Simulated scan of single mutants.
Amino acid sequence: MYPYLDHEGPIAMAHRGGALHPDNVGYENSMHAFEQAAGLGYQYIETDLHATRDGVVVAFHDHRLDRVTDRTGVIAQLPWSEVRQAKINGHEPIPLLSDVLEHFPEIRFNLDIKADNGVQPAARVLREHDAIDRVCVSSFSQARVDLIRRELGERLATGFGQREIARLRFAPYRMVSRGACLQIPEYYGRLRVLTPGLLRRAHALGKQVHVWTVDDPAAMHRLLDAGVDGLITDRTDLLRDVLIERGQWVRS
């Protein structure tokens, strides 16, 4: 068992800090959002990682600054001295991964590495902060997942990469993975990703299944009834209410 997954009951994870909580709209992946999730009692927060041109790792989803900040440009092409001037929703600075780890020492973070140039800088920060046991690293890219595993070793909890998810879904007889958990949507377009068979096979291998991004209370109840191990949500207020109703909310 990875220390990251040592938790009583279903894992409730704040996606980008709870991007659609009424108090967070416009402030995804900001210290404001992370503080709000921690204040609700969330023990797990999901965030995304990019590295600047000079290798500084920031908690930010998009490749570009344009959508959620008052600046423009591709993060990987800009130095930190420029990225640090951008403000989320015109007010909040973009957090450094190092600052997030230091400010929330009791929180476990799910880290989605969004670009190839972020893998080794992120590994360096995690080593420097002795944070390997309280993070799970995931990525849409199987190559990034494989690389971070090589960089940080077997102690690190990782999500399945896309190739591993497909193998477990369609060719389980070939399944070998160091991944600790599957972090998947219920549907990807018209394709149903989460099936009873996939959930059963994952559990047979001792792997947890976390479903994203679930913002509807009825869907939360349905997925928890089906036996998933965690839900990743933008509506941190609603998931908290659902888990309280079910007697499954574990406050930090």
Rank of each mutant, 00 (worst) to 15 (best):
M1W: 01
Y2T: 06
H7Y: 09
H7C: 02
E8R: 15
G9V: 06
P10F: 12
L20E: 13
H21M: 01
Y27D: 04
M31P: 05
A37H: 08
G39V: 05
L40K: 13
G41T: 04
Q43N: 03
Y44Q: 02
I45N: 03
E46K: 02
H50K: 13
T52Y: 14
R53C: 09
D54S: 12
D54C: 10
D54H: 11
G55V: 04
V57D: 03
V58L: 09
A59H: 08
H61W: 10
D62K: 13
D66T: 15
R67Q: 10
R67A: 12
T72M: 11
V74M: 12
L78F: 14
L97A: 13
S98M: 00
V100F: 07
E102T: 13
P105M: 06
E106G: 04
I107P: 03
I107H: 03
F109H: 12
D112V: 02
I113R: 06
K114G: 07
N117W: 06
V119W: 06
A123G: 13
V125T: 02
R127D: 01
R127K: 11
D133C: 10
V135L: 01
C136I: 12
S139M: 00
A143E: 14
V145C: 15
V145Y: 08
D146H: 10
L147C: 09
L147Q: 14
R150H: 14
E151A: 15
L156I: 09
T158P: 08
G159L: 01
G159Y: 04
F170S: 03
P172D: 07
M175F: 15
S177P: 06
C181W: 09
P185D: 08
Y187T: 10
L191H: 00
P196V: 01
L205D: 07
V214T: 11
D215R: 03
P217R: 01
M220L: 03
M220F: 10
H221P: 05
R222V: 05
L224S: 02
D225N: 13
L231A: 01
L231D: 01
R235T: 10
T236G: 05
L238F: 05
R240V: 01
I244F: 02
R246I: 08
G247T: 12
